[in-house]
């Protein structure tokens, strides 16, 4: 019996290489796992001793040790909520248009290019834009509103993309059934497609909230590095330093005697919030998978 020569020569070296690379792939992957564990562990270990109720509920100090992060924590949540409230309608609208109205042609490709470009725009560039237009030209100065609007620019492309993708994932027969029942296109989108896509969109929104929560470059130049003396201050015209900006500012400014401890504690708080958000995303994801199965 003649056996054909295989296209790949499997010499001993090839087998050794196969084994070696298999091992190497595992090692690389495990390195990333170790990096993550080392990272989160390191941050939490440094900041653990700072984490107490007093740290979370005291006002920050300008020159003395012992300041807390109460207003920063509030500003972080307030700014994330405001920026999402601004970005949601626009992102949803643009996503709906791209998925349902733009067709498949050149217009869709152009809109996608624009959304991708905005998504890839460095946050420091968005910060410069917000600084020129809002802080200086409109005279809003360093304030919550300047920060919220500029931060919304960061959220819009992400929400647009996730809305478009989720709407494209809606099963065709569902839409056809809706049209079959006599619904208009708008009714189909609002009452059939959007409810079906809602969990997917919500996952994207939670991820966006996490990104906005951690953003600092934008807010340094638009929301400023000070906090209001009142608490809680819902006014839109006061400066609103967030947790991430505070973390950066105390380490680079260097006037606080306990800057290192405050930075470590702030970092630990941020990591804990983000871990919680991540858990939320995972639960939403599981809900989606249970439904589609």
């Amino acid at each position: 019996m003649t056996s054909r020569v295989p296209a790949f020569k499997v010499r001993a070296t090839a087998r050794v290489a196969d084994r070696a690379m298999h091992l190497a792939l595992w090692l690389i992957a495990l390195t990333f796992v170790a990096v993550l564990i080392g990272f989160v562990g390191g941050i939490l270990k440094e900041g653990w001793s700072e984490l107490n109720l007093g740290f979370l509920t005291r006002m920050p100090e300008a020159l003395d040790a012992g300041g807390g992060i109460k207003p920063e924590l509030f500003n972080s949540l307030y700014l994330v909520a405001l920026s999402l409230a601004l970005a949601m309608p626009i992102g949803l609208g643009a996503g709906i248009y791209m998925a349902e109205y733009a067709g498949q042609g050149r217009a869709l490709r152009f809109f996608r290019l624009c959304v991708e470009t905005l998504a890839a725009t460095p946050s420091i560039v968005l910060a410069l834009f917000g600084m020129i237009l809002l802080v200086q030209m409109l005279g809003w100065s360093f304030s919550i509103r300047s920060g919220a609007v500029t931060l919304a620019l960061l959220n819009i492309p992400v929400i647009t993309r996730v809305t478009e993708e989720s709407l494209r994932g809606v099963p065709r027969e569902l839409l056809e059934a809706s049209y079959g029942l006599g619904a208009t296109k708008l009714q189909t989108i609002l009452k059939v497609a959007l409810p079906y896509a809602a969990t997917g969109i919500l996952t994207g929104v939670v991820l966006t909230a996490g990104r906005a929560f951690g953003e600092s470059a934008i807010l340094v130049f638009t929301a400023g590095t000070n906090v209001s003396q009142h608490f809680p201050d819902f006014r839109l015209s006061v400066p609103g330093e967030t947790l991430s900006v505070h973390l950066w500012y105390v380490t680079s400014d260097g006037t606080l005697p306990d800057a290192t401890q405050i930075a470590a504690g702030t970092a630990a708080v941020m990591i804990l919030v983000l871990l919680a958000l991540n858990l939320l995303v995972r639960l939403l994801d599981r809900a989606i998978r249970r439904r589609t199965r």
Partner: peptide, 18 residues
Amino acid sequence: DLLVGIPSVVYGIFGLTI
């Protein structure tokens, strides 16, 4: 997912202090 979600200032403070 977790690595991409960590804010840049937290990466920065890790680099700076550790």
